[in-house]
Amino acid sequence: MMNVMTIGGYKAVLSFDTELGKFRGQFVGLTGDLVFEGTDIAALQNAGELALEAFLAECERSGAAPTQLFTGKLTLNIPTQVHEAAAVIAAANGVSVEQWVTEVLEAAASSVIGPLQ
């Protein structure tokens, strides 16, 4: 199960570290590797807010962009049978493989993080 938390408009993926007995969060889509921890959800949220605030302040101070640029281009290497199946399904739905893959990825992403903007 994937758990995602939004902090300050940025998405973070959450997990639980059984060895440390702590929740762990990692922001996705930032130019730096920003990880935070907490013993409960409230502490995790607070740690994420503090980490993000410090990261954004450092980006502003240094003039660095805080977020990664997503171009909309994605190169995949998939098994040939998956490629063939995608082509059949796309054709059966009257769309290109690219359009079908886009729809599948959008539906999967929306089910985890909510509607895409």
Rank of each mutant, 00 (worst) to 15 (best):
V35P: 00
L56A: 01
L34Y: 09
P66D: 03
Q68I: 08
E58Y: 09
T71L: 04
M5R: 13
G32W: 00
V28C: 11
E58W: 09
M5S: 09
F23K: 02
M5F: 13
G72D: 05
D33N: 15
T75F: 04
F23N: 02
L44I: 10
G9L: 10
A51R: 13
G48N: 09
L20N: 10
K11L: 15
M5D: 05
E58F: 07
D40Q: 06
A51Y: 06
A64H: 12
M5C: 05
T39G: 08
L30S: 03
L56N: 03
V13F: 07
A54Q: 09
F16G: 00
E37I: 15
T6K: 13
R24W: 03
L76I: 14
L30R: 00
T6C: 03
T71G: 02
R61G: 01
L50T: 10
G9Y: 10
G32A: 14
T67N: 01
L74I: 15
L50W: 01
L74Q: 08
T31S: 11
T39Q: 13
F23R: 00
P66Q: 02
D40L: 07
L14C: 12
E19G: 06
G25F: 03
E60R: 11
G25A: 14
F16Q: 06
I41D: 03
S62C: 02
D17N: 13
A54G: 09
K22H: 10
A51W: 05
A54N: 10
G48D: 10
D33M: 08
D17F: 03
D40A: 05
A65M: 08
G72C: 05
G32Q: 08
V28A: 08
E49D: 12
S62Q: 07
G29S: 08
L20R: 12
I41C: 02
R61P: 00
Q26M: 14
T67A: 11
Y10V: 02
F27H: 05
M5V: 14
L50Q: 12
T71S: 15
E49R: 14
Q45E: 14
L76V: 15
Q45S: 13
F55T: 01
Y10Q: 00
V13K: 01
S15Y: 04
L69A: 08
E37F: 15
K73R: 12
A42C: 02
K22Y: 13
L76T: 09
Q45Y: 12
A12W: 03
I41S: 00
L20S: 09
A65S: 11
G8D: 13
D40R: 10
E58Q: 12
G32K: 04
D17V: 06
E37W: 15
A12F: 01
T39E: 15
L14V: 15
A43N: 09
L76R: 09
L44K: 04
F70M: 04
T31D: 09
A57G: 10
Q45F: 08
A65Q: 12
P66Y: 06
